[in-house]
Design a protein around this nucleic acid. Structure first.
Lengths: 146, 146
DNA sequence: TATTGTTATACTCTATAACTATA
DNA sequence: TATAGTTATAGAGTATAACAATA
């Protein structure tokens, strides 16, 4: 295709190639997860919030977990509340805060979600040994090999 | 299918752990690229378009490459055109279409971008051998090992 | 009649600022 | 005065529909 990228790639395997592979794998895993999430009529952010609410959290804590600002938590939680999946309860220790707590339906939905996400995966064709190797290499790439 | 979906996960390394590692690595690589892109005062989509325009493309082709709809190409290209990086030329074979062609400044910017993106990377601490192993594992995970 | 690119428009998501109620 | 959550509002980005020019 283009010649300018080959200077670095030619030596061994270059940054751009690995970046492309990681991106592709990431997209494939994400696509799989989005499929499971869509099966339950959830948006990705709703699903993330649902995952985080295994234990009650304040809006502030949830915002930190979701890496977003508090108004966005209000936005997402309001939708989940309308669907009857979560309720806002007064915080027992701080009258300003609210505890976001899953309803019975919310807990069921969360378990359903986690079950679906773990059930099948685009990595199923790998053997246990291959997965183990992949994990170790990823850890090494992230600079925290054991 | 087993009712205990985590039986394999608990034993070795599960889907969720690898997904998390791949996502983290992907985010880290993306963050690195966003840094390089921001250095040139570009948005990620502009950078992607710039990369794709190594050869002239029609808006339709660029939309396919960027996985978006044609109006969004108009949106992005109009910005790049205002910055003097690209021009819309009549297509030699189809009067309806337009060829999106980089200007001299656009070509320079594109090369600068590619050079910066390849210059350093969050994978620099890996040896050539380790990178090679990582690449092979990723290819295997993607189901197209050599 | 079909297709290319553009315009007009709406929707989603996210961010900042202002407001309230507690602390 | 500071903090938690909400509301109001604005911005970027992406989508659909309607349109003009061309095939």
């Amino acid at each position: 295709m283009s010649t300018e990228a080959k200077s670095t790639a030619a030596a061994g395997c270059g940054f751009r190639e690995i970046r492309g592979l990681v991106t592709e794998l990431s997209r494939r895993l994400d696509a799989h997860q989005r499929g499971r999430i869509a099966e339950l009529d959830l948006t990705p952010t709703q699903a993330k919030a649902l995952e985080e609410l295994g234990e009650p959290r304040t809006a502030r804590e949830l915002a930190a977990a979701l890496c977003c600002e508090p108004p966005n938590v209000t936005y997402v939680i309001s939708k989940l509340e309308k669907q009857g999946m979560v309720v806002r309860q007064p915080h027992p220790l701080d009258g300003r805060a609210k505890q976001l707590v899953l309803t019975e339906a919310g807990r069921e939905l969360r378990l359903d979600l986690l079950r679906r996400m773990g059930a099948e995966s685009p990595l199923d064709h790998l053997s246990d040994a291959e997965r183990s190797v992949l994990r170790d290499d990823l850890l090494k790439a992230l600079g925290r090999a054991d």
